[in-house]
Design a protein around this nucleic acid. Structure first.
Length: 932
RNA sequence: GGGCCCGUAGCUCAGUUGGUUAGAGCGCACGGCUGAUAACCGUGAGGUCAGUGGUUCGAAUCCACUCGGGCCCA
């Protein structure tokens, strides 16, 4: 038998079936670098509509993780899509470079001795070095993910111009009266004389005093008829009693009086009476009526337990627990977070009798001069002598300690700087700004509104070294704040030229205007000293709308989009919103997209202890960045996003399907160029149907992208490619392989394949950034108009609109019939009647309503082609299925009685052409034309 | 403890204003093909829609509670 294989147009391409992404991707990175794809894309879009996605700066410490990778890829997806749609969409990545974690790392590296020898300026230099190192590390890692942007010129919060932006906003808000100096309790180490951040605290068990103290009421109470009433409090920090100003009760809880054996009445939460009685060793006590709700006792006054002649007040709060203690919480706003917040809400004073070194000043009353720890037993003894100590024991509990000296830390109010939410109406302005922003997904607006709606004033000062100074001065003589438009402008100029480092090395007289004087005592510029504190890093990153969006000519404020994880409702979204609302009166973004957090396959957070951490770097090394990108695009970011080995395996399988489809398309276009294209009206109806399908899927996918539903776009494409492989591509093989290479029928098929390829490679490019570039390189040169797929335009498919509906309907009908055919073929296969479908001859019976649609194709070859069988006879169905249901078709399968053509493998009449007696008529024609 | 949110087949996702037997793709099982071949095609088995209780003629969909999970607070 002659070998006909060589006479066929079998698929041919060098596009590898195996992706080997981890090896091949770097090659495309190089190409993009060489071409400057991001820059070129921007030039192509210059003058067009803009779409600014403003990057939220990740912290420049450590390697990237799944969360940062996810976020960056999602951003890149948006930028690539918008760029293809014709938007001028520059992407300027940024890093958050200041802050306690870096300072802490550097300090740990230096060790205590090294720290002692290091000046603040030197420490800052080391912090800068550290930050820059990780900017470099993360930059390479983000680039490796295929993220395009201005990597050579990112924004860094430590750049002088950026630092100056902080001062611009501060100046505006300070001069408006929104920024004030107040006090707030923070963790304080009395041995190191320093403030501690949460990360600098180590918790360990500690034995503490546990005392119950009676605060005598001076207002009438519901229990007065039984004796002298007191509210009974419990505390483990007796030394905070001199700072007591209130007692907080639980709102809805019931309180009762308890008459003790000695006749006094103690007021406490009813459900804790038994527990307290046991600890205090009460016997013969009596629970008195009435039972009163916490809120009904609010406003009563009692005698301050330490200071004679001073009173405290009963208030209520939601933080009061009824599991331990008495349900009546001793409240000293200067000594605890809850106490501070509840104090703020009730407008309580905040006495702070403890000095830097932990000793009491005059506010400590009888304990002045003692340090807080040695004061404890003295206070207990003193209370006992006064008769107000009801019980005293000791308990062991977890207590915070200083990471440096391992000593217990205390909560102590210190002077801090605040942004007021209400003095200048910032809360109102911000709430209005929120309402003008598009929040995606929709629930996101609830979250940000709730947070801004009831957040306390923003404490923006930190007692650290590595950051941007609070840009005000104080009078060295009287302590008054020195901050005017002129001093702010001088600081802005200083930071812009020399950076914030100059704050720590220069004297104010070197950069402040000569005429600067203290507004209170009139001291001159030589007596002015700079503020020690630095600004909260959230403030710093927040002002990027000014330091970056306003500062860079290619960007603008407000940005079209901020896109971050949902934790940023508390973080960057809010700090950006508040600083922008405070300075400009509106939001810095037009819309905000938030995504969920990365969790493992079971939905639990990733942690080292659970051993479920997946690193993007490992995935890149094992499977490639495109797998990461496809995983990102496939997930619904509206909720938490799962990742696990299994999920990534599934992602790789989905990837392979796309890749194989690309390979098939490429391999059948190796001899095709645009001038071979066949016009719409010269195309077989199947090809026109395929183009309608393509137009439909493109429309769906575009809508999904436009509505930020990337996973739906990927799904639509995946479904499309699946059906394409199963139906159209499978059907086309006969024409592609067996018809004459340059025949109109084959060229028509190729025309459609080329359009499909052109659409797929473009619409998938934002997701499969590397693979689509690879495909681009393998496409016939006539099919690509630019050097890189990432420079190309979003595709369109031109199909005569009037014909679409009919073609769509007819295709749907043919497909329904085809489904019955495949089922029947499967049955026949199981009966060993046929193997491959080409061995089959069908009789297809259809109900009357479908008959004309099918009948008119009978004998044209279309049905045989579409079902991939050798013969189709169409008949009217007069029967119904045995179960009474109506099917689209009833199919009888027989083995084709004609012989198999050795060339095209269809069963046809052979030898019609005596010149080629072995083969069927079609193949004979092809052979004759090619001169074989 | 509070605020916002999530829980549909092994995996990723659809399920329109509550309306027949809850869908798809992948995976899996079985089969076909060997001219997309570490591919391709077909058939099939998988779900008490987290649970419980309500509202309703009817609930995956509305309400309440419980369980599990996430972020942010405390």
């Amino acid at each position: 038998m002659t070998d006909y294989k060589s006479t066929m147009n079998l698929p041919a391409t060098d596009f590898p079936m195996r992706a080997s992404l981890s090896q091949r991707e770097p090659q495309w990175l190089e190409k993009w670098d060489d071409l400057d794809v991001h820059g070129k894309a921007l030039k192509r879009r210059a003058g067009g509509p803009t779409f600014i996605l403003h990057d939220g700066p990740p912290y420049a410490n450590g390697h990237i993780h799944m969360g940062t990778a996810y976020n960056k890829v999602l951003k890149d997806l948006v930028v690539k899509y918008k760029t293809m749609r014709g938007f001028y969409s520059p992407y300027v990545p940024g890093w958050d470079c200041h802050g306690q974690p870096i300072e802490h790392q550097v300090e740990k590296e230096l060790g205590p001795e090294g720290m002692a020898k290091t000046t603040q300026a030197e420490l800052r230099a080391k912090c800068r070095e550290w930050a820059m190192r990780f900017v470099g590390v993360q930059r390479e890692e983000f680039k490796r993910l295929g993220v395009l942007g201005d990597w050579e010129n990112p924004y860094l919060t430590l750049n002088p111009a950026y630092e100056a932006g902080n001062v611009r906003i501060f100046k505006k808000m300070y001069l408006d009266g929104a920024i004030y100096k107040g006090a707030k309790p923070i963790h304080w180490c009395i041995r190191c004389h320093t403030a501690l951040a949460e990360a600098e605290i180590e918790y360990s068990d500690e034995t503490s005093e546990s005392i119950y103290v009676a605060f005598r009421f001076i207002d009438p109470t519901p229990w007065d008829e039984y004796g002298e009433a007191s509210v009974l409090i419990w505390t483990t920090t007796p030394w905070t009693l001199p700072a007591n100003v209130a007692v907080t009760l639980a709102d809805g809880a019931d309180y009762v009086g308890v008459k003790l054996a000695d006749g006094r009445v103690m007021v406490l939460a009813e459900e804790l009476v038994d527990a307290v009685a046991e600890v205090a060793g009460w016997t013969g006590h009596e629970v008195l009526s009435p039972r009163v709700k916490g809120q009904d006792l609010a406003g009563l006054h009692y005698a301050q337990p330490v200071h004679d002649g001073v009173t405290g007040v009963i208030i209520t709060g939601s933080h009061v627990e009824l599991t331990t203690g008495t349900g009546a919480v001793h409240t000293a706003p200067g000594h605890g977070e809850d106490d501070y917040l509840v104090g703020q809400r009730h407008g309580l004073p905040m006495p702070m009798p403890v000095l830097d070194d932990g000793t009491f000043d005059a506010g400590g009353g009888p304990f002045e001069g003692l340090d807080v720890r040695s004061a404890n037993p003295r206070i207990i003894e003193w209370l006992d002598q006064r008769g107000t100590l009801i019980a005293a024991t000791r308990i062991s509990h977890s207590y915070p300690h200083c990471w440096r000296c391992k000593q217990p830390v205390i909560f102590r109010a210190t002077e801090q700087w605040f942004v007021s939410m209400d003095r200048t109406g910032l809360r109102e302005t911000a709430m209005k700004a929120i309402s003008e922003v598009e929040w995606i997904p929709g629930w996101s607006v609830n979250r940000i509104s709730a947070m801004v709606g009831d957040r306390p004033d923003w404490c923006i000062s930190r007692q650290r070294a590595w950051g941007v100074p609070i840009p005000v001065h104080k009078c060295g003589k009287c302590g008054e704040t020195v901050a005017t438009e002129a001093t702010f402008d001088a600081v802005i100029a200083l930071f812009e030229t020399k950076g914030a480092d100059a704050w720590f090395t220069m004297r104010p007289s070197e950069y402040l205007p000569e005429g600067t004087v203290c507004p209170r005592c009139g001291a001159g510029v030589d007596d002015v000293v700079p503020e020690d504190d630095i600004v909260d890093v959230w403030w710093e990153s927040g002002v990027s709308h000014t330091s970056v969006l306003d500062a860079r000519p290619e960007l603008h404020r407000p940005a079209e989009l901020y896109l971050e994880g949902s934790d940023q409702h508390r973080g960057w979204f809010q700090s950006a919103l508040l600083t922008s609302a405070g300075a400009y009166g509106h939001a810095p973004f037009e819309r905000v997209l938030t995504h969920g957090f990365i969790v493992d396959g079971e939905g639990r957070k990733m942690s080292k202890s659970l051993g479920n951490v997946v690193s993007p770097l490992d995935v890149i090394a094992k499977s490639g960045a495109d797998i990461v990108r496809l995983w990102v695009a496939s997930a619904d970011y509206g909720q938490d996003i799962n990742v696990s080995d299994e999920i990534l395996d599934r992602t790789s399988e989905a990837y392979r399907r796309f890749r194989n489809a690309f390979r098939f398309l490429l391999s059948n276009l190796s001899d095709f160029s645009p001038q071979d294209a066949v016009d719409w009206h010269d195309m077989p109806v199947l090809d026109r149907m395929a183009l309608v399908q393509l137009a439909d899927v493109l429309e769906r996918v575009t809508a999904h992208y436009d509505e930020w539903r990337f996973h739906q776009a990927v799904r639509a494409l995946s479904d499309y490619v699946g059906e394409l492989s199963a139906v159209y591509l499978d059907v086309l093989k006969d024409r592609l392989y067996a018809d004459a290479a340059a025949s109109r029928s084959r060229r028509s098929a190729q025309t459609v394949l080329a359009r499909i390829l052109g659409v797929l490679v473009r619409v998938l490019a934002p997701v499969l950034a590397f693979t689509c570039e690879e495909v681009w390189e393998f496409m016939p040169t006539g099919l690509r108009d630019v050097e890189s797929v990432h420079l190309s335009d979003w595709p369109s498919v031109d199909v005569p609109a009037v014909e679409m509906a009919e073609l769509r309907q007819e295709y749907a009908y043919l497909l329904a019939v085809r489904e019955e055919v495949t089922k029947a073929l499967e049955d026949a296969r199981n009966e060993k009647v046929v193997g491959k479908s080409q061995e089959a001859a069908l009789r297809v019976s259809v109900p009357a309503e479908g008959l004309p649609a099918l009948k008119r194709h009978e004998g044209s070859g279309l049905l045989e082609e579409f079902f991939i069988v050798s013969e189709v006879a169409v008949a009217a169905a007069d029967e119904q299925a045995s179960d009474g249901s109506r099917r689209a078709a009833y199919v009888v399968v027989k083995r084709a009685d004609k012989e198999k053509c050795p060339r095209c493998w269809n069963h046809r009449e052979l030898g019609v052409d005596p010149a080629h007696p072995d083969v069927c008529e079609r193949c004979a024609g092809v052979l004759a034309a090619s001169g074989a």
